[in-house]
Nucleic acid binder design. Structure first.
Lengths: 206, 206
DNA sequence: AAAACTACTGAACAGTGTTTAGTAAATAAC
DNA sequence: GTTATTTACTAAACACTGTTCAGTAGTTTT
């Protein structure tokens, strides 16, 4: 019975179409203006159709923010060629912050906005493990390698990973949500951020 | 002419009433449910009245988030009695994070939400300098004192201040926006945060 | 050919921030 | 003291939002 298979394929493609256009509108116009009606217009279907494929707006944007994590993970993968684990950790910070700078709306959705987290199930099964964990595990692995090879000070892995993530996320989110805009214009944020990361690397260096 | 003065006093009190009730509803119900209509009902006036005292919702909540900065500043003031500047810096971090933990909605408004920042004027005059700067300057002063007395490593003041702020804000905002909820339940966040701060203090110690 | 199912939509609901025309009361002018 | 003006306020509307549901073509099954 090939009909059922075709229908499932069509259903899958429709979901993909909605997802793509939702991402498009979102990237172009931001979360607030990425209304169900605006997305519906873009896919040339009625708004109600979207609800046949996604439970609500939160679930739709959970799927959109997953796309962001896939992309960030891919960008992190390019670091595999760097031999020195300390330099790899350093570059990881820069890639993270570059991602935030180049994709502010997506970063917002991934790490700041409440929308996708609202769609998180209370008790996820093994195979629907949170997509952000893949990136976090990458960070943990690099830190562990640095400790194993005596490149950075020995310390609790979780404490170190959370500290580093908090630091770069703090930088990114303060910037994205305009909390650094109150500082004098002549302050070169780019340079400040670079210095901050180098400084942190220096501090934790063994 | 006492009438004009009375009118201005009444106007000022009305503004204060709106502000108080707006803060009440906001603390109790969060930003989204703190609608203009809900606030209007609380003050027993029509919604349109609020617009005679505040340009829009952003400006109203800019005023609300100022209240938060006054309170945080007050809490920071209690540290003046601590002689050791390094311990004062350490306690500053704890107070900051305790404030975030005890007033999550207010912290959100002060440091994460876009609403109040939208109301920021492009070119503020001297006397309407941003309220958050008072707290930031407090941080800078403590750091400077620590460097002067050789308690922490010499470094660029701005780089160090931004790094420390980013770190604690990263912790607070990841927590408030649910990004630490994906970690296993057995992970003791409170302890993790304490260790993270102590760890940072250890790193920057001279 | 009739029945069942599928994919989709128009229209409505309840809510939002905001604007405007209009009103009643307080004040100012004569 | 009466009229004119200004002030403080509001009802109602506008243009949105996410979401639901009855209804309807079109496809598939019987």
């Amino acid at each position: 019975m090939g009909i059922a298979e075709r229908k499932e394929r069509e259903r899958h493609e429709m979901r993909k179409l909605i997802l793509e256009k939702a991402k498009e509108v979102f990237i172009e116009e931001g979360y607030d203006k990425a209304s169900i009606r605006a997305i519906a217009e873009r896919i040339e279907y009625s708004p109600a159709t979207i609800y046949l494929y996604f439970k609500d707006k939160d679930e739709l944007f959970f799927a959109v923010h997953e796309l962001g994590f896939f992309e960030l993970f891919d960008q992190m993968q390019t670091l595999a060629s760097i031999e020195n684990p300390l330099e790899r950790l350093r570059q990881m910070g820069f890639i993270y912050l570059r991602f935030a700078g180049e994709n502010p709306e997506m970063y917002d959705l991934m790490f700041i906005s409440r929308a996708p987290i609202n769609a998180l199930k209370k008790d996820p099964t093994e195979d629907e493990w949170y997509c952000g964990n893949r990136v976090f595990n990458l960070l943990c692995a690099v830190i562990q390698e640095n400790m194993d090879k005596g490149m950075i000070r020995q310390n609790d892995l979780m404490v170190t990973a959370l500290s580093i993530w908090s630091f770069v996320h703090g930088l990114a989110s303060l910037h994205i949500r305009g909390r650094l805009d109150v500082f004098p214009q002549e302050l070169d944020l780019r340079e400040l951020v670079t210095h901050s990361i180098d400084n942190l690397i220096n501090l934790i260096k063994a």
